Computed example of a mutant assay.
Amino acid sequence: MPIAAVFQGGHALHDKNAGPFGFEPSGIDIVLLTHAHLDHCGRLSLLCRQGFRGEIIPASATRDPARPVLPGSAHLHE
């Protein structure tokens, strides 16, 4: 499973989406963003909030589609 994946399935999974990753985000240097589906990149903002300070490298075809997805997912985590 991608490390920043959003768990889908309703309100019962809200706590899981807001919970810890099971590893220390500050220990990661790079996140490769292969596509902009919310279920695969929706917790990137949480990853950053929990200590990730590395580089997020999107695939060239992912950069533009991710622009509206990432702020929306950050809003959901606020």
Rank of each mutant, 00 (worst) to 15 (best):
R63L: 08
T34W: 02
C48P: 00
L44D: 07
S26M: 09
V69P: 12
S60D: 00
R63K: 11
A66Q: 11
L38W: 12
V31Q: 00
D29Y: 02
C41I: 15
R67M: 04
F23M: 10
A74W: 13
P65Y: 09
L33N: 07
P25C: 04
L47G: 10
I28L: 08
L70A: 12
R63C: 07
L33R: 12
I56D: 06
F23S: 03
D39V: 06
R53C: 11
L33H: 02
G27F: 08
H40V: 03
F52L: 04
I30A: 00
A59F: 06
I30T: 01
F23N: 07
P65I: 10
S26P: 05
L32H: 04
G27Y: 08
H40C: 06
C48N: 14
G27L: 09
I57E: 05
T34L: 10
R49A: 15
D39R: 12
V69K: 13
F23R: 09
H37W: 00
L33M: 11
G51F: 14
I56H: 07
R67D: 01
H37A: 06
R53G: 09
A66L: 13
E24D: 13
A74P: 01
A36N: 09
T34A: 04
V69G: 11
S45R: 04
G42Q: 09
P71R: 15
L33Y: 05
L33G: 03
G27E: 13
S26V: 11
P58H: 08
S60N: 00
A61Y: 01
I30W: 03
G72M: 08
